[in-house]
Design a protein around this nucleic acid. Structure first.
Lengths: 350, 350
DNA sequence: CCAAGGGATTGACACGTTTCAAACATTGAG
DNA sequence: CTCAATGTTTGAAACGTGTCAATCCCTTGG
């Protein structure tokens, strides 16, 4: 900037004004400065701006798994909303590891980000509380909270789990399994709670709900769970499987197909998230749909509101309702010989 | 830091030493400083560090589409390599838009990133040349280059296209189509060139290769292309389709299935990238496999090398060979009634 | 012709670090 | 007791901006 000022024959302050408040500068000088900038190929130094401003123009988004299309869709929504505000999203992948999550939070705090949007790995709030206490707003993504110190955007996962398993029960399935994990993840445990509730509501013994716990929410974890299901005798084997997310469901589907089990005839499957690949799967996958981009967008907007409103901000909790999309993977009435329909019926949950 | 210094009863310089060169500080004072830091909850200001250092510890990665699992895998590889070096990856999504790409490059340059890893949208090098001229190293990802000013990591896309279409020809297909676009993307045009070459090598008229150009490399673009294919009469319809990437291939597959066409019986499909969902598709998808994480890792390492070596750096071009993974979607000999095999044969290309 | 007013420009300071020469303290040798 | 050597600690000077009170210059009304 000093060079620009010299070349344009003006003071440093004027250059700054041209960049930040052009209206204050006369057209003639403005022109000279702009030319000098072009001539020298001057590029603003964002670090210095941040240092001066005290805050960066970056928002941190910490997700569980960038390879999961659910999260990239959330990220896209967040990115759009941030761009409208001149902010940018810094995408961080915790990979479901507490240490990596902590490392990224450190990094983000050191960068003095405007705020953090996060789907936390654990349920330990201490680190996040610290962040908030030091002045970095936090918005919980894809998880509700009763915590007074932050906003949250979530989908009612209990309702989603309920809808999925109610659907399986309604279709006549008796041996039903839940595939998902780790249970430490709130999304997983909530969906499980919903599944259990559906059993109760359907007049079943909730203890009957079989549980296949997985370590990750990935395709390969799903394949492993699928192998375990395949390994069971026909009498033990569940006929309806609800998976905590679509990646697991796709993995299970792959494993079953690999062993010659037919979906939905031998085993029906319902996933969660309704990622684009769900409808494109070997057997189009029934799934509980979440408004993925909207979640990201809303979380970002809550954060921006919080920043603007300052101390007068009232933390808000936004909860969306999930929708069950019924496709071929579960769309067959048990104990009937009706052929699987492939209708893409999407209907409101519950 | 000033506060820490005061509380610990030392000077500012000492606090800095504790943080950066602890060995220089006596254990006793070091202890006092560390305690003060903990007590005050002091967090380094990365902006100030960067300002002082002149460079950030961030590496920019600009990809065409974060929703494409190919790129998230590349990102994972890059992230791992960066972490080993104490750097972090900032993931930017150009969404195949030139303006967004330009905007992100501006942003990255303003942040004084260590370097930029990029899969460019266009073939206009001017903006990147500027970056390099001003001192920000650039590594091209997933695209080769003859340009002297930067390193590149690529996969031989001509070879990949060649392998895919040769495979279709060898399986007895006569009407073959290429689905992909925009042709402005080097990856797409190279794969197309390979496809044309395969026609020639197979003794066909390259003019016979049908072309379905798409706007994007996405599932929905694939579905649209699929609809166009379905719309053709049986006599015109290609029996073998090579798609420029797996998302397109999955889209085509979905459209065909939706209209009752059987894959591979009526139409065989080969994709590109071999993303995880390829093997999990409705019909497991034949695909040209690229070492996705390795691409990201290698690109990052090239960049770090370039930074370390400074002006003595020799730009390098790394090229990987793709491998064709043959699965059910193309694994049937034309004009024979043999049933589709589901073998997961992966064999070296060509 | 003067004073007041207003737009345009300036200059100095602050932001939070790192760095490095200089000052200081301690020790051991002569 | 002095000096040199070694090990610690200090203080001040950058780094590149944004801000804001102060100054300058020009116009306008009296």
């Amino acid at each position: 900037m000093k060079d620009v000022a010299r070349v344009a024959g003006v003071s440093l302050g004027t250059v700054s004004n041209v960049l930040n408040q052009p209206d204050l500068v006369s057209p003639a000088t403005r022109r000279r400065v702009v030319d000098a900038i072009a001539q020298l190929g001057f590029v603003r130094n964002e670090s210095a701006r941040q240092l001066r401003a005290g805050r960066s123009r970056t928002i941190g988004l910490v997700v569980l798994d960038v390879s999961n299309p659910f999260f990239t869709d959330v990220a896209r929504g967040a990115e759009t909303a941030a761009a409208e505000n001149g902010s940018i999203i810094m995408l961080c992948n915790s990979g479901q590891k507490v240490e990596r999550e902590a490392r990224y939070l450190d990094l983000l705090e050191e960068q003095r980000v405007q705020g953090v949007l996060i789907t936390p790995v654990g349920s330990d709030n201490a680190r996040l509380d610290l962040l908030v206490a030091r002045g970095t707003p936090v918005v919980l993504v894809d998880r509700g909270t009763e915590h007074p110190n932050w906003c949250s955007v979530a989908v009612d996962d209990v309702l989603g789990g309920l809808a999925a398993v109610s659907h399986l029960i309604e279709r006549g399935h008796r041996r039903i399994a839940f595939v998902g994990g780790p249970m430490g993840l709130r999304q997983v445990s909530d969906r499980h709670v919903g599944a259990v509730k559906a059993m109760t509501d359907g007049g079943r013994d909730p203890g009957e709900l079989m549980l296949f716990e997985t370590t990750w929410l990935t395709l390969s974890s799903g394949r492993q769970a699928g192998e375990r299901i395949v390994g069971l005798s026909e009498a033990e084997r569940p006929t309806g499987v609800f998976c905590a997310n679509d990646l697991l469901a796709l993995g299970v589907l792959q494993a079953l197909a690999g062993h010659g089990l037919r979906v939905p005839h031998d085993v029906a499957i319902v996933g969660y998230d309704d990622i684009d690949y769900a409808a494109a799967a070997a057997v189009p996958l029934s799934s509980v749909r979440q408004p993925r981009e909207l979640i990201g967008r809303t979380a970002t907007e809550l954060l921006l509101d919080e920043m603007r409103e300052g101390s007068s901000h009232q933390h808000r909790r936004v909860t969306f309702k999930p929708e069950l999309a019924i496709r071929a993977s579960s769309d067959m009435r048990r104990r009937r010989s009706s052929s699987a329909r492939t209708a893409r019926a999407a209907r409101p949950a519950v």
